[in-house]
Design a protein around this nucleic acid. Structure first.
Lengths: 342, 342
DNA sequence: CTGAAAGCGCTTACAG
DNA sequence: CTGAAAGCGCTTACAG
């Protein structure tokens, strides 16, 4: 491997011109079988591999897709990244990954860095709404899960999925529910909350009223734990019988708070999450949650990047309810039930 | 942004030659201040940004570092990836990420893909020992955490760190310990086990003997849970009083098994992990473990890639013991203690 | 169907 | 110190 062979070497070896070599490489143009044969032989004899950089310079197209996530250490984003990588690979593309650490400036500079490398397209899971810059389309950009600027968004249908949780909890008999919302400056946070709340409101009109409390936090464990601790540190008749969280991490934090306070889940309290990270199935009790179709989301995002011309519509994909051990029938304390009756 | 400006545009605008523009860009060669000035003005006036691809083609050097990990969804690798990304960024490099899904073929093809892109260097966290191919050095390659082929390894000093756990458990009075080892076809798995075992053996010679059982599993939750369940489904006097696991995930699985079997941790059983993933501090009880210095590991790996000439020595970095709630003094059942006495 | 040639946007000896 | 020119390894009109 003293020096990588080039098209020129292949051409000489095969006794043809570099143009011909290039043509058999691309596979498109018609080349006489005899020559094609010779070139192929030369390629394998020499162990030739095309120089991706030169090709990129010439065509100003690469086969790398840039992905920026807020934090790769967050299990949901890790899963998303894994899915995007797989989807990209399926289309013969490579992944360049950057973490914004929830910092808008870092996010922007990563996007610019990708632009400088003339990547094929950029997928960004925004750190927050309003992040994003007025960039017009040298390369396609798409928002995944969380909206970046004004770029089209591929995401779970947060509202629909959140309504699934509302149905589940209402169906289980819960009439005093707390919702731990995500940051209101994220579209996902807002939509999940709205989907949940409006479904509960609907029940208020068509069925029994539900007492709904809403608390806000970040999407992480600590927020969930803290909010839940506040909620649960009350006399038992004032406590919600169910906590619906806007993320699995929050829900897992809530589970922890419940355990610390010796509140039995699911007997005394139901807890639900959102995302279905792999941990959701490992905590005790296993977490009832919404599965976000990470593979589908990723595949759609990648396809959208590659499609011509790039569409501008958003795309929502339904989530599905995964019922596990952390949610169960409401066991209203007798005093409370009596209270409601008069 | 109809068309990106090039050095030529800058040169014309500034009234100099492209060579001069290139020289001020590189910052190295001496350029008369007046011209430097003009060029800088032109650059910002035009919003010029150098074309990375062209530069790469010319110099056959890029500023991207390739990283291949077995599974980005594994929290420890995610943390490692985040650290590598940060370290790369600090040195002005970008990260290209690939997941091998513990598949040797995928691993190889990713390495080749990186080679094709003439990345600046490749860091690989191998899927297993013996993976890796006879590649001589067009671009530097370094193994991180798990050895890839014969390339130099930057890793935690697994043996030293495992000995720390042995000391801790012995000091707590445990004399019947189970060790859940990692896959013996990984260097990390073997070294952790050897470090642990040889320290325990040492105690056998210099202090009280320790009954040590060793079970093997993968590094994941499921393995830990399964092995622990087997170990703990015995009459209590035959059970180990401590389980040391080769990974946090295994340990968390073991914690779960203990909870299912109603064995109180840490009162009846101590459990320790290895890695200090963020979850370790969130499970109940919090996990005593070894902190792998991910940031340091990542920074060293990146530095090694960039250093000239590339050294060939391995590099070990000490881990540190993090004591939390999952380990405590041994509470030997009386019958058992009596048994040992006669 | 194929070859000769131009050119993608840079960097870097080479003169001067 | 600076400019003119070659060349990195490809692809792609343009002739023929």
């Amino acid at each position: 491997m003293s020096k990588m062979p080039t098209v020129k070497d292949v051409a000489e070896y095969a006794g043809v011109s570099v143009g011909t070599v290039s043509r058999v490489l691309s596979g498109e143009a018609a080349v006489k079988p005899v020559l094609r044969e010779k070139v192929s032989a030369a390629i394998s004899a020499l162990g030739y591999r095309p120089n991706v950089t030169a090709r990129a310079l010439r065509t100003s197209k690469t086969d790398v897709i840039g992905l920026v996530v807020p934090d790769i250490t967050n299990p949901f984003f890790a899963q998303l990244a894994a899915s995007v990588e797989r989807a990209a690979l399926e289309c013969g593309h490579s992944l360049m990954l950057a973490s914004s650490h929830d910092d808008r400036e870092a996010e922007q500079s990563h996007v610019f860095a990708f632009l400088d490398r003339s990547v094929r397209g950029i997928i960004v899971v925004a750190s927050s709404d309003g992040s994003g810059l007025p960039l017009e389309g040298a390369v396609p950009i798409i928002s995944l899960d969380r909206r970046f600027g004004t770029f089209p968004l591929v995401s779970t249908n947060h509202a629909q999925a959140a309504a699934l949780i509302a149905d589940h909890l209402y169906g289980l008999g819960h009439r005093h529910i707390a919702y731990i919302a995500g940051p209101p400056d994220t579209e996902a946070g807002r939509m999940r909350k709205e989907g949940f709340v409006s479904r509960i409101d609907l029940f208020g009109k068509t069925g029994e009223a539900v007492e709904l409390e809403i608390a806000y936090g970040k999407f992480d464990y600590e927020s969930g734990e803290k909010v839940a601790r506040d909620l649960l540190s009350r006399p038992s008749q004032d406590r919600p019988t169910a906590i619906a969280a806007a993320s699995d991490q929050q829900a897992i934090g809530a589970l922890r708070a419940a355990r610390d306070l010796k509140i039995d889940v699911p007997r005394k309290l139901s807890v639900t999450g959102f995302d279905d990270i792999s941990l959701a199935n490992l905590v005790v009790p296993r977490l009832t949650t919404i599965r976000q179709p990470a593979d589908t989301l990723a595949r759609r995002a990648v396809s959208r990047l590659l499609e011509e011309p790039p569409g501008m519509e958003d795309e929502m994909i339904d989530g599905s309810l995964i019922v596990r051990g952390s949610s169960g029938p409401c066991a209203q304390p007798k005093a409370d039930v009596a209270g409601h009756k008069n």
